[in-house]
């Protein structure tokens, strides 16, 4: 469903060229629940941006939903992002002047869905994350955990192929973090959506079925290693 092959990304810092990603191979299948762990500066944000179609790799191929995304125009890429990717951010990134319902409906509006229909779909998905009684609340009227629930609902609203969660529990206390993780795990199981969690927290990582490590721009896929070593 999602396949990276030899993805490289380098930045020019003055006269020096810094290679942040040094040939990443990654395959995410429908229904996957995987973590990408790594210290800061390891390139995990860069990888997340490329996965989320927000940035383009310097080289390598990226196939998503059976198509090569490297040649897409901004318009195609935006539509593709809307269709296939759901983002969950560490700092929630809800729009402060919109209600929970409006926030969740937003990706659907960009898809061209009518207001009423988008509202119904948003309500439905907010019920699923147990936020059905907070539809008209604005983000500043919600707690951190509630905000992240709304953000997860927004990521799922457009029935994406994969949810990319960048430190989804980074701004939450451990109890709330646990709740949010359980929610992600449940949605992954019930909705069949692939979830990729980028984190530096081993506890979060361990909750995922598949774990991988990024270090110095290289990805060590735990499951691949386990497969090679013959472990279960």
């Amino acid at each position: 469903m999602l396949e990276l092959a030899d993805i490289r990304k380098s930045y020019r810092l003055g006269p020096v060229e810094v290679e942040v990603l040094k040939g990443i191979d990654l395959r995410v299948d429908a229904g996957d629940l995987m973590s990408i762990m790594g210290p800061s500066g390891s390139g995990k944000s860069t990888l997340m941006n490329i996965l989320g179609l927000l940035g383009r790799p310097t080289s390598g191929s990226y196939r998503l939903g059976g198509r090569d995304v490297s040649t897409m125009s901004d318009r195609e890429l935006s539509a593709f992002r809307n269709e296939h990717i759901g983002f969950v951010f560490q700092s929630f990134n809800l729009l402060g002047h919109l209600t929970a319902l409006e926030n969740v409906a937003l990706p659907l509006t960009y898809r061209g869905m009518g207001r009423r229909q988008a509202g119904r779909r948003a309500e439905e998905i907010l019920e699923k994350v147990a936020m059905g009684d907070r539809l008209d609340h604005r983000p500043d009227q919600l707690s951190g955990g509630q905000k992240q629930r709304v953000a997860i609902a927004r990521a799922l609203a457009g029935t994406p192929s994969v949810v990319l969660a960048d430190e989804p529990t980074g701004a939450l206390d451990s109890n709330t973090a646990d709740e949010v993780m359980q929610l992600l795990i449940r949605l992954n199981r019930d909705e069949g959506v692939a979830v990729v969690i980028i984190t530096h927290d081993p506890v979060v990582s361990l909750l995922c079925r598949r774990q991988s490590l990024i270090r110095d721009g290289m990805l060590l896929d735990g499951s691949a290693e386990m497969a090679e070593s013959g472990a279960p």
């Binding site: 318009r75 539509a79 992002r81 809307n82 269709e83 990717i85 983002f87 990134n93 960009y110």
Partner: peptide
């Protein structure tokens, strides 16, 4: 800017 970034992440094109 952040709002623009979020909107782009949610699928808004440059034209939007």
């Amino acid at each position: 800017r952040r709002e623009i970034g979020v909107r782009r992440a949610l699928g808004a094109s440059r034209g939007d």
